[in-house]
Computed example of a mutant assay.
Amino acid sequence: MLPAATLESAAALLDLLRSRGLTVATAESCTGGLIAAALTAVPGSSDVVLGGFVTYSNGMKTRLLGVPEEILSTVGAVSEACAERMASGALHAAGADIAVAVTGIAGPGGGSAEKPVGLVYIGVARRGMPTEVRRHLFPGDRAEVRAATVAEAVQSTMRMAEPLTR
């Protein structure tokens, strides 16, 4: 279950997107659809949310979002390059105005010295603008990392939606 504050932020994001005439899509790995769930928990979200992609495996990232296998084999799925391609791939595949993508290591296993548990990359793409990707290191257990990722993804999408031009 997501915190009430995250759901309130999701509602505020949808209001902003609606006021700007923008649509959104999601591409999720470590959150497994929680961002889409937060957005669609808001009544009336269907006029703004086009859909989402849960691409937990590398193969799905490639097939559905066009993430090159070379990125996955060289820098890996948990990387800035992968988050950027996931966001731009979702933007294109869904035909949305904005797409948010997340990829990371929620734990409890799977971390390493270079890529510890809690490492998450969040990418946001908007038509006609450069894709923005930010690296985060969220503390906590699996549920806390995933919840923090959803909250930050909503805020990152809001930042990308705010300006009419950049």
Rank of each mutant, 00 (worst) to 15 (best):
F53W: 13
G66E: 08
T23M: 07
L65A: 05
L65P: 03
A87N: 12
Y56T: 04
M86L: 10
M129R: 12
L91Y: 09
G32M: 04
H136D: 03
R18N: 11
V102F: 06
M86S: 02
S156P: 00
T40C: 10
A148M: 04
A113G: 00
E69F: 04
S57F: 12
L39F: 06
G123R: 01
E28N: 00
G128F: 04
S9L: 14
T103D: 00
H136E: 05
G118I: 09
T31H: 06
V54H: 01
A161V: 12
P43N: 03
G44M: 12
E162L: 14
A94Y: 08
V42I: 14
M60P: 00
L164A: 13
E162Y: 03
L16R: 12
S79T: 02
L16H: 05
T62C: 11
T6C: 15
M86P: 01
L14F: 08
K115H: 10
T149L: 10
M129P: 00
A87R: 10
G140M: 05
E114T: 14
E144T: 14
G59C: 09
A87Q: 12
A151E: 15
V120K: 04
G123F: 02
T131K: 00
S46G: 10
E144W: 01
T103G: 00
I105P: 01
A101R: 01
L22K: 08
T6Q: 14
R85D: 08
A25T: 06
T74F: 07
V78W: 00
M129V: 03
V150F: 08
R18W: 09
R135V: 01
H92K: 15
G140Y: 06
R20S: 13
E114Q: 15
S73M: 07
L16F: 07
C82Q: 03
R142K: 06
M129G: 00
T23C: 07
P43W: 05
S9P: 02
T31P: 05
R85F: 09
P163W: 06
L13V: 10
G59Q: 15
V49N: 05
R146M: 10
T62D: 08
D141N: 14
G128E: 07
G110V: 08
V102S: 12
T26F: 04
P3C: 09
L137A: 13
G109I: 02
P163V: 08
R146S: 01
V54L: 04
S29L: 00
R134N: 01
M129K: 00
N58V: 09
L16V: 14
E152Y: 00
D47Y: 03
V102H: 03
L17Y: 10
V100N: 10
A4N: 10
G118E: 08
A12K: 15
